[in-house]
């Protein structure tokens, strides 16, 4: 008899393993998918690099420092996208009736939704983020200490949690939006874009939206300021660079509230 934990996880493992096998079986299509995803990462980095091709310092940061911000935030986003990126396709599941099938199974709805798909191609973005991070760590003026390494590790894990929370939040809101699913792109993909920017250039409204409500500024920019020892812009205090786990907790509380509201609102059409 297997122990209770692995018995509990067995159905999810079986589903995920089948998804992974399915994607790898169409080799040409999978290779093209991987190539395209890698290109997504490269183009996003190029968009940052082009700005620094024109100026040397932007928002108080040099290119190596912003490469650190980009690397941390983009890798965290890529992993969150791998795990939860399909959750914001919830309206498709609602329309097709797939969601009603989830209700019939003895596992929690959200866990089933998360485990319902995994897009391996999204892993192809990681090397770009990793390369940017590596370049930043070598080229930027990093103040190395055990605390720096701890800060980078904590930030990366919290970043994954923050972006995952944004996807769950989007899924919850989409019970209400259905046809208006694009609205959540504003903070999910807008959040990714914002997370790779030096937040010093933002207006007050953007600082509230992406610094507090959807706290992506904690996934890269604020911690990197501590790593390369630059002052934090108003209104973020210096210790905020260490506060990524707090931001992750807040993002998850917000996400779970959105999800609960959405599920309570949902009425299956039956069939």
């Amino acid at each position: 008899m297997a122990d209770p934990a692995s018995a509990l996880l067995a159905p999810y493992k079986a589903v995920l393993a089948s998804r992974i096998r399915a994607q790898r079986s169409y080799r040409a299509s999978f290779a093209l998918d991987l190539g395209s995803s890698l290109l997504v990462g490269l183009v996003e980095l190029a968009e940052v690099w082009i700005l620094f091709h024109n100026v040397t310092v932007l928002g108080g940061m040099s290119f190596p420092s912003i490469a650190l911000v980009f690397g941390l935030a983009d890798m965290a986003f890529a992993l969150a996208d791998l795990a939860c990126g399909h959750c914001d396709r919830l309206p498709t599941y609602v329309r097709a009736g797939t969601l009603d099938v989830f209700y019939l199974r003895p596992q929690p709805l959200l866990a089933q939704l998360v485990a319902s798909d995994i897009s391996l191609r999204r892993l192809a973005r990681c090397p770009v983020g990793a390369a940017a991070l590596g370049y930043g760590l070598v080229a930027a003026d990093v103040q190395w200490s055990p605390a720096t390494i701890a800060l980078l590790a904590v930030t990366f894990l919290s970043g994954c949690a923050i972006f995952s929370a944004l996807f769950i939040c989007a899924a919850g809101l989409q019970f209400f939006l259905i046809n208006g699913a694009e609205m959540t792109n504003a903070f999910v993909y807008g959040g990714r874009y914002a997370a790779t920017q030096p937040a010093r250039v933002w207006s007050g409204a953007l600082k509230v939206v992406f610094g507090m409500v959807f706290p992506v500024v904690f996934a890269g920019y604020l911690p990197v300021l501590r790593v390369v020892d630059l002052p934090s812009p108003h209104p973020f205090p210096e210790w905020a660079g260490w506060a990524a786990p707090l931001a992750a907790v807040w993002a998850w509380l917000f996400a779970i509230a959105c999800w609960r509201c959405g599920v309570r609102h949902y009425q299956g059409a039956g069939g």
Partner: peptide, 14 residues
């Protein structure tokens, strides 16, 4: 509009 404000912030700074 959200993307517009983000784009404007970084491009104006540039």
């Amino acid at each position: 509009v959200t993307f517009g404000f983000l784009k404007a912030a970084i491009l104006f700074a540039t």
